[in-house]
Design a protein around this nucleic acid. Structure first.
Length: 488
RNA sequence: GGCGAUAUCGUCUAGGGGACUAGGACACGGCCCUCUCAAGGCUGGAACACGGGUUCGAAUCCCGUUAUCGCUACCA
């Protein structure tokens, strides 16, 4: 065996029946991290055997989501639907070796018995003897072309494995009923398809959600009956909504694409997801992808389900907004500004330095890209709208405010250079002359410049709004206030 | 119902017999900084589900109870 064959092989196997959900994304992430950490191979398998529910659109959404997160796969995508011939052959192989048997009982009959048992309050269990026929009977039914399902004959004993996160898990085989592996229409059932494909893909570790724990003994039995050595298993906990219930639409944004749309950074999403159900063992929380890979260790995997805390996700995104180099951040914020109709890509390119400086000012006050866009209009549009509350609060005395703003305008206009240090010096002098605090000038000025009571430092605002627009806005404010007072 | 999994602050977690007066982060409150808002710094409140064992000693090991979740399909 060559050394290449010893590389760990893991996979992410979503059903293309919706978007890529955060739970799936995290399962993919753990697998990806494992592969990257241990020089392994990360594979993607689309489980599209349920043709009624699978869509191409969903498949694309899954690819897009994984790519956005940077979880790239190493070999061609495997489509389970393309392997049904092998699934069928494997089922028949088990039939030949006696590990499985034909069940001519119609599905409708099983359904009826199940309903009956439930009505009695009993649990229905398929009884192997129901299907046991003499060779002659079987031959006759076969000759008559009667349809049959293939059931796996669960042997006696106990099926156990050493789970990567749960240690030992054991199931007495008596609790597992003879499950169908091939339907009477010849299509494979999930557990068979998964095992057949995982064998074919030479998967060495199956890491998946712990909702699959109960499937695992059945799958292990299939590996053994098929003459294959079973892979390692690791069952990671689920992600729950804020109410402790399974994450669903009702909880709002649950798809990875939703967060992309909401202006989250993929690095923040990955970092946050990694910390849901896994920890480094030390106190580090904000980690780059290379750090995540270096620190990843299955021992840090949690057994307990985790609640998806959007507040912490936002905080994490704020950290990434602040930490990401402006050169890298600008290209992702620019399209959002363009989309909001505030500017064009060309205009931003032309004022690259200005844009980066502005971005640096706004990002520290933001948790998402949308937050940045929301703060941006005063710097991209010639005029601003006044927030009524800001007017009430800072321009309550219209006459006084107008006077201060007029004086402010005069001092600023007189400056030889439009530069923060000089502005501050000039306005602090003005405050001194008027025997008022700096805030008494800065706050009304802030409303004139951005229309709000909140903004970055006032001198930064003046600088980034620019001389021309700033002075015009002061004029407009004075006009507004004098008109207002004469009207009143 | 049966089987399985899980159980530390509101949330994510550290902890794997004595280092625990149970640590960190998010969120929340206070203070500092300050032209506002953030960011940052300091700081406060806040948890071992319950009951039995084992042990000199238990958040840590064992058993039970409870609660939650999952599976129990000719769904995946």
């Amino acid at each position: 065996m060559s050394s290449a064959d010893l590389r760990p092989r893991v996979r992410f196997a979503p059903s293309p029946t919706g978007s890529l959900h955060v739970g799936g994304a995290r399962t993919a992430l753990f697998n990806w991290l494992y592969a990257r950490k241990y020089n392994g191979v990360f594979l993607l398998r689309v489980e599209d055997t349920d043709r009624a529910r699978s869509t191409d659109e969903s498949t694309r959404a899954i690819f897009d989501g994984l790519e956005w997160l940077g979880l790239t796969w190493d070999e061609e995508v495997v489509y389970q639907g393309a392997n049904v011939a092998r699934h069928y052959a494997d089922a028949h192989r088990l039939l030949e070796t006696g590990a499985a048997y034909r069940d001519f009982t119609p599905a409708s009959e099983i359904e009826r018995l199940r309903a009956e048992a439930e009505a009695r309050g009993d649990a229905f269990r398929f009884d192997r003897s129901m299907a046991m026929l003499s060779d002659a009977e079987t031959a006759a039914k076969l000759a008559a072309g009667e349809p049959y399902a293939i059931r796996f004959m669960v042997p006696d004993g106990v099926t156990e494995w050493h789970d990567l996160v749960h240690e030992r898990i054991a199931f007495p085989n008596k609790d597992i009923e003879d499950f169908v592996i091939l339907r009477s229409d010849g299509t494979p059932v999930y557990n068979l398809a998964v095992v057949s494909d995982d064998i074919d893909m030479r998967i060495t570790l199956v890491m998946r959600g712990d909702d699959h724990i109960s499937n695992t003994p059945k799958q292990i039995l299939l590996y053994r009956a098929l003459g294959a050595t079973e892979p390692q298993f690791g069952h990671v906990p689920m992600i729950l909504g804020a109410d402790g219930k399974k994450l669903s639409k009702r909880h709002g944004a649950t798809a990875v694409g939703d967060y992309q749309y909401l202006g989250l950074l993929p690095g923040a999403m990955v970092n946050f997801l990694a910390l849901l159900g896994w920890s480094t063992g030390d106190d580090t929380e904000v980690m780059t992808l290379p750090e995540l890979i270096a620190k990843f260790d299955t021992h840090g995997l949690q057994k307990k389900a985790a609640i998806f805390d959007t507040k912490k996700l936002e905080w994490m995104n704020g950290q990434y907004l602040a930490l990401t180099a402006l050169d890298a951040l600008a290209p992702v914020v620019a399209p959002a500004l363009v989309k909001a109709g505030l500017t064009t890509a060309e205009a931003l390119d032309a004022r690259r330095e200005w844009f980066h400086g502005l971005l640096d000012l706004l990002r520290i006050r933001s948790r998402t890209i949308d937050d940045i866009v929301r703060q941006a209009p005063p710097y991209f549009q010639p005029t601003v709208e006044y927030d009524p509350e800001a007017v009430t609060k800072q321009w309550r005395d219209a006459k006084a405010a107008a006077e201060i703003l007029a004086a402010t305008r005069e001092r600023l206009a007189a400056l030889p250079v439009w530069e923060p240090v000089a502005m501050e010096e000039a306005l602090r002098h003005l405050a001194e002359e008027l025997s008022i605090s700096g805030g008494k000038i800065f706050q009304p000025l802030r409303v004139a410049l951005v229309g709000l009571t909140v903004s970055p430092g006032i001198f930064d605002v003046l600088q980034y709004v620019g001389r021309e627009w700033s002075l015009a806005r002061l004029d407009a404010a004075v006009a507004y206030l004098t008109a207002d007072s004469s009207a009143a």
